[in-house]
């Protein structure tokens, strides 16, 4: 008799559990407001990343086309993947020979976004930008020069 009642209780408990499951999915079906799909390329205008989002390394320039980088090379040393290459040159300023930045090369393809370069930069010359659409057809386009052509070191840092 025990196994007989067990047979039926199993049956009805099973059916009950199945209906509970159906209720959950059914309730979502009738509530289209719960839909979370983002239609990505169409929502480009409204899509905003958080300000700390590590999209790519950038070097901010002010409107006089000046940056903060002193070409000290700490970021290059700290980068685990060798994705930063600093090419410096020597300029004669006030009669003294000084090391200044020539090219700040950033290999986006090798970057793992660990953030050590930004963290260790003594003059806060580089930050992470929000751009995330990096897809290209060629690997070489992922090697970027961060300092704009003709840009120079900021005055107050130079002193």
């Amino acid at each position: 008799m025990n196994s007989f009642t067990k047979y039926f209780s199993d049956l009805f408990n099973g059916i009950h559990s199945l209906i509970t499951g159906l209720k959950v999915t059914g309730s979502y079906f009738v509530r289209p407001k719960e839909i979370v799909t983002q239609q990505y390329p169409e929502n480009r205008a409204t899509l905003k990343m958080f300000e700390r989002f590590k999209g790519e390394l950038t070097m901010p320039h002010n409107n006089l086309n000046e940056h903060d980088c002193t070409a000290c090379g700490i970021c290059e040393m700290n980068c685990p993947n060798g994705s930063i290459e600093i090419i410096s040159k020597f300029d004669v300023i006030d009669g003294k020979k000084k090391k200044v930045l020539d090219k700040y090369i950033y290999h986006l393809g090798m970057c793992t976004f660990c953030g050590l370069c930004v963290k260790t930069c003594p003059s806060d010359a580089i930050i992470f930008g929000q751009g995330f659409e990096h897809a290209t057809f060629e690997r070489t386009t992922l090697n970027k020069q961060l300092n704009k052509p003709g840009s120079v070191l900021k005055k107050e840092v130079k002193e």
Partner: peptide, 30 residues
């Protein structure tokens, strides 16, 4: 996704957060 958004806002990464460093954190919480 809700948690990843919290991570993204504070740590800058979603999956691989890289938020710790010896001696503390990379930056303060958002």
């Amino acid at each position: 996704e809700k948690i990843l958004d919290i991570f993204e806002e504070t740590c800058g990464g979603r999956l691989l957060v890289s938020y710790n460093c010896p001696g503390g954190l990379m930056y303060d919480i958002h």
